[in-house]
Design a protein around this nucleic acid. Structure first.
Lengths: 336, 336
DNA sequence: TTGTTTTAGATTAACGTTAATCTATCTAAA
DNA sequence: TTTAGATAGATTAACGTTAATCTAAAACAA
């Protein structure tokens, strides 16, 4: 800007105004300055602007793992919507580590992002304290943080998982394997509890052998089922923490010559795009991932615009999707 | 910092030094200040620091689509490596649009990122001009930009694709469908040229009917094969621009009752993790995605540290991976 | 005692932008 | 002719941090 001022003879401030159409400078002056700016390849230094303006037009996104297709979709939603508001996103991954989460939280505060969208880990007291101190608007995506109410935007984990288990039980399944999710993630507990509760409500014993923890990756599903089979555990259906796990499950089942769905039915969770391309295609819960990201930005923006706006937790609708790995028709199982 | 200064009675500058262990203040003073900083929950304003320091410790990443598992892996590599250098990344997606690329390029320059890692679109003159003006170190990932040499870090697209086609021809295939990639991407041309060149070298006519453009998504592969079959095109092998397309191909083939690989062999590209979990598992080219990201950061850092370092293009090694969709054994085809 | 060195900390300018406030000039109405 | 009002642009302080430079006091040697 200094160079432009020097080159055009105007004051540095007049240049700033011209570049922003701020005050009514004469069209002639404005044009002159802007042309010179183009010529010199001027690019506004947004560090300086942000510092002065007290906002950065950036929203910080702390996700667990953006290479996971689930979060990737959420992030796409965030990005697309943020762009409409003329915001950019700064994206980091915690890999589900509370320490990373804390570190990035501070980083973003220091960079003065205008808002924060977080896929948080579940259970860590010091994080709670950190959040209580943060004066930037923030929202949790698809998860809940103990002790911090009303900052989440959720998808109905508990009820969806219940629906699945109920459906399988109604179909006659009694031996349902549950491949659970990673440790420090609220969805894991909600889904697992739904599984247990539903069994109990239907007078089926909850056998801890039938609950296998995974970290939610495709190879975990593969390994878990292999192990279960080797241990001689008998089952006629498998509920997976997510579609990725279900994909691994399918491979193990195939290698062990189990017919899906006729011998074993498989249910995933999330409705990743690939799931419909698997053979067999995977029955699952459609979680509105992209919409979750969009909605989160909308809500966050409302909080950015009005610092006094009260937080409320929102719950997004999901729906079961029946595909080849566990088709809707009751007949399939009634034959057995 | 002002508050800390006020609270402790030291000058604002002494506070700054204490917080950075900069000069040798007495341990007592340092401790006093740092404790107070903790108490007040002080977080360094990195906007101000960056402005003063002339570096941001951020590297800007412009990717085509980070929800694509390929780029997701690359980004993971970038992120992991950047973290070792104590850098953070600012991630944006262009969706293969030259305009977006230009816009983000300016954005990052304005934000004074210390370096730029870009998955660029191919063919746009104005972008060339932009790049020539940028005074921030930058590298292109896995792609080439016309007119800007030596800024790329590549994987051997042309030679890998040739290897595949040669392999299929040697197996006896003459009718090889090629599902090509998106329009403005250098890999598309390199792979397509490899396909054409190899056919010609083997005295097989290049029939334009056998080359079907896709935008590289899973549903494109599905649609393309459906169309080809409906048009009555006969083929015994399909080369896909990438694994995603191959996955769509597999579904179409299955629905149309073609046996893979006995009737039709399928080859992908990229070696996504999921590819080995497909049924049948997909033969493909292993592109070192994560390593590409890592390597890119290493090189970029070298350029950040030494502005005069000369750019050279690096080519990463790939290798063919034979799986069920096109197994290695020659016997498979020699029966036909 | 004097002078030199060391230690501890303060003063100040700067990074690039913005915005409140101010000044000068021109126009037009009273 | 005088003056209010509009128009065009300049001056200046501020955002939060850092670093070069400076000052004061203490420590030590000759």
């Amino acid at each position: 800007m200094k160079d432009i001022a020097k080159a055009t003879g105007f004051s540095i401030n007049t240049v700033s105004r011209a570049l922003r159409d701020d005050s009514k400078l004469s069209e002639q002056t404005r044009k002159l300055i802007c042309d010179k700016a183009d010529e010199l390849g001027y690019i506004n230094n947004s560090l300086a602007s942000s510092m002065r303006l007290k906002h950065s037009k950036i929203i910080g996104v702390i996700t667990a793992d953006s290479s996971n297709p689930f979060f990737a979709d959420v992030v796409r939603g965030i990005e697309a919507t943020a762009k409409n508001y003329n915001y950019n996103i700064l994206l980091v991954n915690t890999g589900e580590s509370p320490d990373e989460e804390k570190q990035y939280l501070k980083l973003f505060c220091g960079r003065h992002v205008d808002g924060l969208l977080i896929v948080p880990v579940f259970d860590d007291e010091s994080i709670q304290k950190l959040y209580s101190r943060i004066d930037i608007p923030y929202l949790f995506l698809g998860r809940v943080v103990k002790g911090i109410e009303n900052h989440s935007i959720l998808h109905s984990d508990y009820s969806s998982q219940k629906e699945i288990v109920n459906y399988l039980i109604n179909k006659g399944h009694k031996k349902i394997l549950y491949l659970s999710g990673p440790d420090n993630v609220s969805n894991t507990y909600q889904r697992l509890n739904a599984y247990k509760d539903t069994l109990i409500e239907n007078n089926i014993d909850v056998d801890s052998q039938y609950i296998i923890p995974t970290s939610g990756h495709i190879e975990d599903g593969y390994a878990a089922v292999n192990t279960a089979i080797n241990q001689g555990i008998k089952f006629t259906a498998i509920c997976c923490f997510n579609d990725l796990v279900a994909m691994g499950v399918l491979k193990s089942l195939k290698e062990n010559n189990f017919d899906v769905p006729n011998e074993i039915e498989v249910f995933g969770f999330d409705n990743l795009k690939i799931s419909q391309f698997m053979q067999p295609s995977i029955s699952t819960v459609d979680v509105p991932k992209f919409a979750l990201g969009c909605e989160a930005v909308h809500i966050l923006m409302a909080h950015i615009e009005d610092a006094n706006l009260e937080y409320t937790t929102k719950n997004l609708k999901t729906r079961l999707i029946f595909r080849e790995s566990s088709p809707r028709e009751i007949e399939v199982m009634s034959n057995n």
